[in-house]
Nucleic acid binder design. Structure first.
Lengths: 214, 214
DNA sequence: GTAAAAATCAAACGATCGTTTGATTTTTAT
DNA sequence: ATAAAAATCAAACGATCGTTTGATTTTTAC
């Protein structure tokens, strides 16, 4: 269940290559070369290429969600503040693990995939939707959120917008003339823009009050 | 530039399989078997597997955008009505060509892809963004839209939400207990829900007026 | 220090990949 | 009817795929 340094090195290289070229488009020899190991080490450590991507999903989906959940359950925060925290945490998570979420999006698009990975994704989505529902019904009970909110589609918009932004970031960078920014500066700018945009979207959509934008 | 019936048949089978299993995950023998042709016909007609997917992109990206553009330029419509028409047309286009847009999303996620396809995608995105910008600046000039709108991120939300909804439609169907609907009924329901959701999102975001939801 | 265990390697395995060949059949055009 | 063109086919091509083998080196443990 836990992996040694060499195994983690292989997984991280595989993660990057799978994100770049897809699972089928990446050969074990590609991985071996980039990770500077012998090809047979992949079978030796993981059993197969398929088991390797499963190991990647195991590692990446254990990430502690509890931190966010404790913040969310804090009674000192207003419902809209909690939604804002959720938005920022999702932005941070997706933007901070672009390779892995690139792979996960690909797996979502595949109709035929190993059940183990489908279960991982289904599990994650379940938790995401539950969290969103908890937050929104909490705001509704407090009387500050509208009653007729499709939290399922709000979750879709939250994840869809961020995923789309990541997938088309080169395009976004070009049409907004941001080529002279460093990669890090651009990533931070995207986070800020997305945060502002999504918070505004949610505020106007879920809140009962009609405040002016920004 | 134009293809005969047999070629189109091959392209359509390839489209379905590429969407299901990805480009690298689909072999030319898979395509030949499903299309009930000899393997060599693919090279014979298209030159290579790579040229086949390029042919698919050529066919699918010639679709007449002019119809929408003429509607949009109609002066009898208010700016928000035009935005609504754009939203519905994007929903119809993406939902009605799920296989192709599945492939296109995959291509967007790949950093290494043939320039021909990247150019097709870049071209499409350019036009989409320009259309959105035209609409929004039109509404701003008419004084009914807010001044500080990030039309680039609004486009991202529009396409991102629909793409995410399509990618996770099985999940959406499950958690909303819609398994007893027929496939066609479910697709129509999704279109309606998405239309309502996105129009509401845009109305609240771009419009100067603060009307109640729905 | 030594034996067992783990790690590493080059090489080879059979399978499948995309593509080409060359013969054969079918269609087209006069 | 006949010759040219197009379409179709089984077979084979070399390359690459994921995986295994078996020998060798390195590490571990007492």
């Amino acid at each position: 269940m836990d992996y040694n340094a060499k195994q983690i090195q292989i997984i991280e290289v595989a993660e990057r290559l799978f994100a770049q070229k897809g699972f089928s488009g990446t050969s074990v020899r590609d991985i071996a070369q980039e990770a500077d190991i012998n090809v047979s080490m992949i079978s030796y450590y993981f059993g197969s290429k398929e088991k390797l991507i499963e190991a990647l999903f195991k590692i990446r989906t254990v990430e502690s969600r509890s931190r966010i959940e404790t913040i969310i359950s804090n009674d000192d925060l207003t419902p809209i503040q909690k939604v804002y925290i959720l938005i920022d945490s999702v932005i941070e998570r997706l933007m901070g693990n672009q390779c892995f979420h690139n792979i996960m999006m690909r797996e979502q698009l595949s109709s035929e995939r190993t059940p183990i990975i489908s279960d991982h994704i289904m599990n994650l989505k379940m938790k995401n939707t539950e969290l969103m529902q908890t937050l929104i019904t909490g705001g509704q009970d407090a009387g500050v959120f509208r009653k007729n909110i499709d939290f399922s589609l709000m979750t879709t918009t939250l994840y869809g917008t961020i995923n789309q932004a990541i997938a088309t970031q080169h395009f976004y960078r070009k049409i907004n003339h941001l080529e002279d920014l460093s990669e890090e500066e651009f990533q931070n700018l995207m986070k800020r823009k997305l945060s502002q945009h999504l918070k505004n979207l949610f505020k106007l959509t879920v809140s009962n009050e009609h405040q002016n934008q920004h």
